[in-house]
């Protein structure tokens, strides 16, 4: 069971009902492992994802550059008092994403999904779903499989690395992966899931990677928040039956082309974008003079 494009994944998912069934068969064949072992490993990842979120919510976690820390707690303050504009579900998911990124910034243990720089998106959305919609862990794990299927196609046909494709390749991919997971968890069809991914990826196309002082803190942490919002918006639209006009595979191809056009200054080198603003330069100087 192999797939290299959205079209192939969809054709196989129509046979096996869900994307996660196809992805499970793919992995089982590829790794020579039985489904039980794969599920166990996914459960461990899901456990570490939740542990990381909790770590950042328990206390203020300052990043290495001291540019971020405590944002997750500030968001928590808002939703615990029902004082939100976007609603509690969105605020909660955002706080979880911020939290993971705080833990990541201080060399804490996280699960890259697909990368560490975008590791807040998928866990943030999934833990919110688990809590707000009482989704059992088994179903969340299926969401992880669905998300992986989308990530594999993007990796094969475009890129998941900020150094190669900018932030669209990291937070953009994470957002597309999460969007598909939400759709399948909430009962949408495989076609809807692919539409959600296509929409999510289009919405973040061209997003550059411009880390201040080269650290995975600013703007990465807040870009994870937009990845969460974007993923939820895309899945909401897809679940409503709104389709992506441009098919998923064509969006992935376009993203690869955009990567090629993106100068290296905007691909994780900290030589462009907000990384070269006066304030960013000031932080960079302060951080590296301390070493």
């Amino acid at each position: 069971m192999n797939f290299s494009s959205g079209e192939e994944l969809l054709a196989k998912a129509q046979e096996l009902k869900h994307i996660y069934n196809v992805v499970m068969k793919y992995e089982s064949h590829k790794s020579n492992k039985n489904e039980e072992d794969i599920l166990d490993k996914l459960k461990l990842s899901w456990h570490i994802m939740q542990e990381a979120i909790q770590q950042g919510l328990d206390k203020e976690t300052k990043g290495k550059g001291h540019m971020i820390g405590g944002e997750a707690l500030k968001m928590k303050e808002r939703y615990t008092h029902n004082n939100t504009i976007c609603g509690n579900t969105m605020a909660k998911a955002i706080s979880y994403g911020l939290s993971t990124m705080e833990v990541n910034a201080c060399m804490g243990r996280i699960v890259a999904c697909p990368t560490a720089g975008s590791s807040g998106v998928l866990p943030g959305i999934l833990l919110m779903l688990k809590e707000e919609y009482e989704i059992p862990d088994e179903k969340i794990i299926k969401g992880l499989l669905t998300a992986s299927g989308i990530g594999i196609i993007i990796g094969k046909n475009a890129s998941l690395s900020g150094a190669e494709g900018g932030c669209q390749a990291e937070v953009g991919s994470a957002s597309a992966m999460a969007a598909a997971a939400v759709v399948e968890i909430m009962g949408g069809t495989p076609a809807m899931a692919l539409s959600a991914s296509a929409i999510a990826l289009q919405n973040l196309m061209g997003l550059i990677c411009d880390p201040v002082a080269g650290l995975v803190e600013v703007p990465c942490q807040k870009r994870n928040a937009i990845g969460i919002a974007n993923g939820l918006i895309a899945s909401e639209m897809a679940l409503a039956g709104i389709e992506s006009v441009i098919p998923f595979d064509e969006v992935v191809h376009a993203m690869k082309e955009v990567s090629k056009l993106m100068p290296s200054m905007l691909r994780e080198t900290a030589q462009g974008g907000i990384a070269t603003t006066p304030t960013a330069k000031k932080f960079e100087k302060e951080i590296f003079s301390q070493r």
Binding site: L42, A105, R109, V111, A112, C113, L144, G155, V216
Partner: peptide, 14 residues
């Protein structure tokens, strides 16, 4: 799939 959900790693950058 464990390149997508994973690696489990110490931050900050995969």
């Amino acid at each position: 799939i464990f390149d997508m959900i994973g690696p489990i790693m110490v931050g900050p950058s995969s």
